[in-house]
């Protein structure tokens, strides 16, 4: 079932998200609810792989609207974010018409919407039928100059193209910005946005996610996987801590291998699903893996497993 923005409540958001296999809680649902009702952008910060981008995807699905994504990176400029003239087509047009038309006529025809390559922000502004979800992903990777430009865009939802004029959004987009905190986002952006900080899920929540996404998984194995991942995240020595997506990849791999529980050999063979740096893999040798597995076993013997069933 799809929803209209004004009909959504916190409870409905939780229900719709869980129907789309996104295990959520009140803080996430409330942030979405307020972003929709107050019509303000939502800035989501948090560790890599804890489901920030997924929120925007699911929201666009719930609202049955287009998701327009702007992936930020160092050196991102207006040409990649808003618009670029299609120079090749403009040249062809000039060649075809130079003998038939006056230069002024050619000029006015080549600087029209037909020759405009629309990048994500312009697409969001020109969307007519329904307000799109505009995902500005990993804003921390863009330069501060771009952040300054974004401030202006978020305030007015308009862009200016010198040859055409100012274009104002026909339907204000629902804006979601994400950041992995590799750089401190300026206070200006923070002030204009509602804010949500996501951390890694609790053990209980992660077990629920694994079971929801991999329904065929053995219940004991799902708990062992989540406890093992939790231990990795707690370790100060790990450079790239595994996110939820890594946990799910590992769960799928172990299911494919028809495993019922974790053992040292399997963990060693499949550890690359979780650890993406050679240094991290080296650090987690036989002894470290064994000590974590022993601890998990000890917890199971104390009856912790039954608590989750």
């Amino acid at each position: 079932m799809l929803a209209k923005t004004e009909e959504l409540t916190v409870e409905k958001i939780i229900k719709f998200m869980e129907e789309r296999k996104y295990v959520t809680d009140e803080s996430i649902a409330m942030a979405i609810y307020l972003a929709l009702t107050l019509k303000k952008p939502l800035l989501i910060e948090g560790e890599a792989g804890c489901g920030k981008t997924e929120i925007a995807k699911i929201l666009s699905d719930i609202l049955d609207t287009e998701l327009i994504r702007l992936q930020c990176y160092e050196g991102l400029d207006v040409n990649s974010a808003i618009y670029e003239w299609d120079y090749l087509r403009q040249l062809l047009k000039i060649r075809l018409e130079e003998s038939k038309k006056k230069p002024e006529e050619i000029e006015s025809s080549i600087f029209s919407e037909r020759f405009l390559l629309k990048r994500p922000l312009l697409k969001a502004v020109l969307k007519e039928d329904k307000e799109p979800v505009l995902l500005i992903d990993e804003i921390d990777r863009a330069d501060e100059e771009f952040e300054g430009f974004l401030l202006e865009f978020l305030a007015e939802f308009q862009v200016t193209i010198p040859e055409i004029g100012t274009l104002r959004a026909r339907k204000d987009p629902i804006v979601i910005l994400t950041s992995n905190r590799t750089r401190e986002i300026g206070d200006g952006i923070r002030r204009r946005c509602l804010y949500l900080y996501l951390t890694y899920p609790t053990l209980e929540k992660e077990v629920k996610i694994v079971r929801l996404k991999s329904p065929n998984i053995n219940e004991r194995l799902s708990l062992q996987i989540c406890r093992f991942v939790k231990k990795l995240r707690e370790s100060d020595e790990i450079i790239k801590k595994p996110g939820i997506s890594e946990t799910l990849d590992w769960a799928s791999s172990l299911t494919l291998l028809h495993k019922d529980s974790l053992d040292i050999e399997t963990v060693q063979k499949t550890l690359s699903c979780l650890l993406k740096s050679s240094q991290d893999v080296k650090r987690f040798d036989y002894t470290r893996i064994k000590s974590i597995l022993d601890e998990i076993e000890e917890n199971e013997s104390k009856g912790e497993f039954n608590r989750f069933l």
């Binding site: 803080s27 942030a31 307020l34 910060e45 948090g46 923070r190 509602l194 804010y195 900080y197």
Partner: peptide
């Protein structure tokens, strides 16, 4: 928290 606190 969503409206007043802007840093994790």
């Amino acid at each position: 928290r969503i409206t007043l606190v802007k840093k994790g």
